[in-house]
């Protein structure tokens, strides 16, 4: 590894992202790695290693790694961490940077498309609303407008236009 290939600003970039602040506190004690259920099934997935790579400034290696998308968000790392690093949140910050730079995997794109189209991952059909009507509940509407705004497909609500139904 050459130090010249490292980006010393990367850790600050991650820390500036919502949820990424915790990276400053890591002691590299590996309690997270000891308990991570993803790591138990994928030898190459190691929270401590991802944090060290980030702190070292291996920006391209981290952002383009398929490993960062494997976290199951079970929060076990956060439970055992003595430093309250909240690795799940740190990884979300890293994933946000990666997604902005076009590193999101196909599954993340499909998820975003479903949210843009439906406002939720599962499409609302007559089946759900008939069941709700039987129970005396109001129908659920698909309101994808907010997600379209988040995804930059339309202006945010209140700025312009009427929410599509």
């Amino acid at each position: 590894m050459r130090l010249n290939d490292c980006d010393p600003g990367f850790k600050h970039e991650v820390a500036a992202e919502p949820g990424g602040e915790g990276i400053r506190a890591c002691f590299a004690c590996a309690a997270c790695s000891a308990r991570c259920p993803v790591g138990a099934n994928r030898p190459d997935y190691d929270p401590r290693r991802l944090i060290r790579l980030t702190l070292l400034g291996r920006r391209d290696e981290v952002l383009s790694s398929p490993l960062i998308w494997l976290c199951s968000s079970c929060y076990t790392c956060g439970e055992v961490c003595p430093q309250q690093v909240r690795f799940t949140e740190v990884l979300t910050a890293i994933k946000n940077i990666a997604a902005r730079e076009g590193h999101a995997p196909p599954s993340a794109k499909i998820t975003a498309e479903l949210l843009a189209k439906q406002g939720r991952l599962l499409e609302v059909t007559d089946f759900e609303n008939d069941k709700r009507a039987d129970l005396g509940l109001p129908p659920v509407e698909q309101r994808p407008g907010d997600f379209q705004a988040i995804l930059g497909l339309k202006p945010a609500e209140g700025e312009a236009g009427e929410e599509p139904r």
Partner: peptide
Amino acid sequence: AMPGEVTAGDGRPEVTYALAGEQA
């Protein structure tokens, strides 16, 4: 490495830990 947990194993305590670059 700080262990992740200590559990009751086969008649003695078992320590779960991860060495650098290795699986837990």
